[in-house]
C-alpha cells in the first residue's frame, strides 16, 4: 500500500523487470494476511453456527475497535523502530481520569479532550525519555507501563468508578460507546475514522514519509536533515493519545472503570501490527496491514468461541498465529 505499489508500469529505462518480483512479493505479503482472514471467515461461515449473522459480525467489529484504535498509534511507533509497552496502562489511566471528571460533573466533551491530552502527555513522557536519555524504548515503556498503571490505581485509591447514565451529560458521553450510526456501532465508526486519518498521515504527509525514513535508517535520516528525535517523539504522542481515546471509548461502553482495566492490551496491539506485516525493527508496515491484523485477531477469537474452544486454547492459538505470521514474514524476506 505504499507508493511503491503503483500499478503503473515503470516508465523508465532498462531492466523494468528489476522491480517486478519485489512488487509481487510486497503485494503477496499483505495478500497473505488477507487470505488468512478470508480462510478464517470461510471456516466461520461453514464450520460454526451464527458467525455470519449481522449481530455477530458487528460484535466482531466492536471487539476489534478498541485494539484497532490503539494499533493505529502502534503502527507509527513500530515503523519508527520503537515499541510502546505502556499502552494498556495509558488506556486505564485515561479512562480513570475521564471517569473522575464525569463524576465531578464536567462536560463530557471537555472530559474527552482532557482525557486524550492525558494520553498525549503520557506519550510525550515516553518519547522524551527515549530520545533524550538515549534509552531503548522497550526499557522506557516497560518502566512507564508500571508507572502509569500505578497512577491509574492511585487517583481513586484503587476504587472503581461507576457512572450513572441518568445524568444527561453521562448519557451523551455513553453514545461514544453504545451508540449506533446507521446501525453500525459507534465504536466501530470511531475505529474506521482513526484508521482513515492514520492511513492518510502515514501515506500522504511529510510526517509519514519521515516515519518510514527514521525507521529505515536513523543515521541516514539524520544525515538527510530529518529531525529524527521529533519524529520519534511525535509517534509516541500519537500512540499515547490513541491509547487514551480507546480507554475513553471503553469507558463509554461500560460506564465503569477500574485501575486494572486493559492489562495485557499492549501484547494484543503489538501482535496485530506485526501480523499486519510491519517489521519489528522498523522501516516498513502499512495501515491496511494493521487493520487486517486487528480483524484477524478479533475474528480468530470470535470463531474459536463459536466453535466452542476453551479460553485457554484461544490464547494458545493466538500465540501460534503470532509466531507463524512472523516466521512466514522472515522467510519471505530472506528469499528476496
Amino acid at each position: 500500500m505504499s507508493t511503491t505499489l503503483s500499478p503503473r508500469a515503470p516508465r523508465d529505462i532498462a531492466r523494468p523487470t528489476n522491480g517486478q518480483p519485489l512488487k509481487k512479493l510486497l503485494y503477496q505479503r499483505e495478500l497473505g494476511v488477507i487470505l488468512a482472514l478470508a480462510a478464517l471467515c470461510l471456516f466461520g461461515v461453514f464450520g460454526t453456527d451464527g458467525f455470519r449473522s449481522t449481530d455477530n459480525l458487528l460484535n466482531v467489529g466492536q471487539q476489534a475497535s478498541l485494539i484497532g484504535i490503539m494499533a493505529v498509534g502502534a503502527t507509527f511507533v513500530i515503523i519508527t523502530g520503537e515499541i510502546d509497552l505502556s499502552v494498556g496502562s495509558i488506556y486505564a489511566l485515561a479512562s480513570m481520569c475521564v471517569g473522575l471528571m464525569l463524576q465531578a460533573g464536567a462536560n463530557w466533551i471537555v472530559a474527552l479532550l482532557l482525557g486524550v491530552a492525558v494520553g498525549a502527555a503520557a506519550g510525550l513522557v515516553n518519547g522524551l525519555l527515549t530520545v533524550f536519555l538515549r534509552l531503548p524504548s522497550f526499557i522506557v515503556t516497560l518502566g512507564t507501563l508500571s508507572i502509569f498503571r500505578g497512577l491509574a490505581l492511585l487517583i481513586t485509591n484503587a476504587a472503581p468508578i461507576s457512572l450513572n447514565d441518568s445524568d444527561p451529560n453521562v448519557a451523551a458521553f455513553s453514545y461514544l460507546g453504545t451508540g449506533r450510526v446507521l446501525g453500525i456501532p459507534m465504536q466501530l465508526v470511531i475505529m474506521v475514522m482513526v484508521f482513515i486519518v492514520g492511513g492518510f498521515a502515514l501515506r500522504f504527509t511529510r510526517f509519514g514519509f519521515h516515519v518510514y525514513a527514521v525507521g529505515g535508517s536513523r543515521e541516514a535520516a539524520r544525515l538527510c536533515g530529518i529531525a529524527t528525535g521529533r519524529v520519534r517523539i511525535a509517534s509516541f504522542v500519537i500512540q499515547g493519545s490513541l491509547a487514551a481515546l480507546a480507554g475513553i471509548v471503553g469507558l463509554a461502553f461500560l460506564l465503569y472503570a477500574q485501575g486494572t482495566t486493559g492489562v495485557g492490551l499492549e501484547l494484543l496491539v503489538i501482535t496485530a501490527v506485526i501480523i499486519g506485516g510491519a517489521a519489528l525493527f522498523g522501516g516498513s508496515g502499512t495501515m491496511l496491514g494493521t487493520l487486517v491484523g486487528v480483524l484477524l485477531i478479533a475474528t480468530l477469537q470470535n470463531v474459536l468461541i463459536l466453535a466452542g474452544v476453551s479460553a485457554f486454547w484461544q490464547t494458545i492459538v493466538i500465540g501460534v498465529v503470532i509466531i507463524a505470521a512472523v516466521a512466514l514474514d522472515t522467510w519471505v524476506r530472506r528469499r528476496q
Binding site: 505504499s2 507508493t3 511503491t4 522491480g19 511529510r206 514519509f209 519521515h210 518510514y212 525514513a213 525507521g215 529505515g216 535508517s217 543515521e219 541516514a220 535520516a221 544525515l223 538527510c224 536533515g225 517489521a279 522501516g283 516498513s284
Partner: peptide, 21 residues
C-alpha cells in the same frame, strides 16, 4: 549502506527524500 540509503524504500523515494520538505 549504513548512512545513506533507506533500505526499505523504493529507488524513487530514496531519490527524493530531501525534496519532501
Amino acid at each position: 549502506r549504513a548512512q545513506a540509503i533507506f533500505p526499505d524504500m523504493s529507488v524513487g523515494r530514496n531519490a527524493v527524500v530531501l525534496d519532501v520538505e
